[in-house]
């Protein structure tokens, strides 16, 4: 049993609390916004200049001047603020965001991670990834546990170009939740059907097990019917 991309996003949303200020990167991270408890005041930051990104608009509610960092149209949540790039990156680099949720190609046991230089992509682009990576209080990583070819993405040291050194706090994969501590990777949660040894077999670095490590309990599908779990 594994989490879908939406399942990973659902699980990350469970770790966000009222009063958190959170930046969601492209890919799986941005899906987290679909699983937030909207009764809680959790503020989403968008690096182009929004604190308080709301849900996507209906087509007839689109405001052409309101886009989020993924360049899709967005709305504003109650209490939202709009600002320019200097203030936006003050929030990011200055340590004011509670969490940045980012995708990754590799995460190393010392907390290094790589996510900006995609293998095979000839035109480089970095955007705000490095600023978030050094600046947010906590870096959460959302990614599949292994590559399409089955190679571990949690590794002893990164071989891809780094985004930042020693910054990752927690990794959410399709089969596990893993903390990155001074002592390396620590397994906290596993999907049903997996155990510490099977997770270790797919991890390219030492993995210790938290005393309270437990199985995740995840519904088959979201309230809107999106599959959170896959059984292949």
């Amino acid at each position: 049993m594994m989490l879908t991309r939406d399942g990973i996003a659902w699980r990350i949303a469970r770790d966000l609390r009222e009063g958190d200020y959170v930046n969601l990167g492209v890919g799986i991270p941005v899906l987290v916004s679909n699983y937030l408890d909207r009764t809680q005041e959790i503020f989403l930051h968008s690096e182009n200049g929004i604190l308080g990104v709301g849900p996507r608009p209906a087509r007839d509610e689109i405001d052409l001047d309101l886009i989020s960092a993924g360049k899709g149209f967005c709305t504003l949540a109650p209490g939202a603020a709009l600002f320019d790039q200097p203030l936006s990156f003050t929030m990011m680099r200055g340590g004011h965001l509670t969490h940045a949720v980012l995708g990754a190609i590799e995460v190393a046991e010392n907390g290094d991670f790589a996510n900006w230089s995609v293998p095979g992509e000839a035109v480089p682009g970095v955007g705000g990834a490095m600023d978030l990576a050094v600046g947010a209080k906590n870096i959460f990583i959302a990614m599949s546990h292994v590559t399409n070819k089955g190679a571990p993405k949690l590794v002893a040291s990164c071989s891809s170009p780094l985004t930042a050194r020693a910054r990752v706090r927690r990794i959410f994969t399709d089969i596990a939740v893993i903390d990155r501590t001074e002592a390396g990777f620590v397994l906290r949660e596993v999907m049903p059907g997996h155990d510490p040894d099977s997770i270790r077999a797919k991890t390219g670095a030492a993995l210790s097990v938290a005393p309270d490590c437990h199985e995740m309990t995840v519904p088959e599908a979201s309230a809107k019917g999106v599959a959170l779990i896959r059984h292949d």
């Binding site: 200097p86 990156f89 680099r93 955007g127 705000g128 990834a129 050094v134 600046g135 930042a164 050194r165």
Partner: peptide, 26 residues
């Protein structure tokens, strides 16, 4: 990096000779 681009422009506009940033170190 985007934040460095912003800050380099800001430095240019506000009369600073540069700045030290942790972004992209290493």
């Amino acid at each position: 990096p985007q934040g460095t681009l912003v800050e380099r422009i800001r430095a240019g506009g506000c009369g600073l000779g540069g700045f030290y940033t942790p972004t992209a170190a290493g």
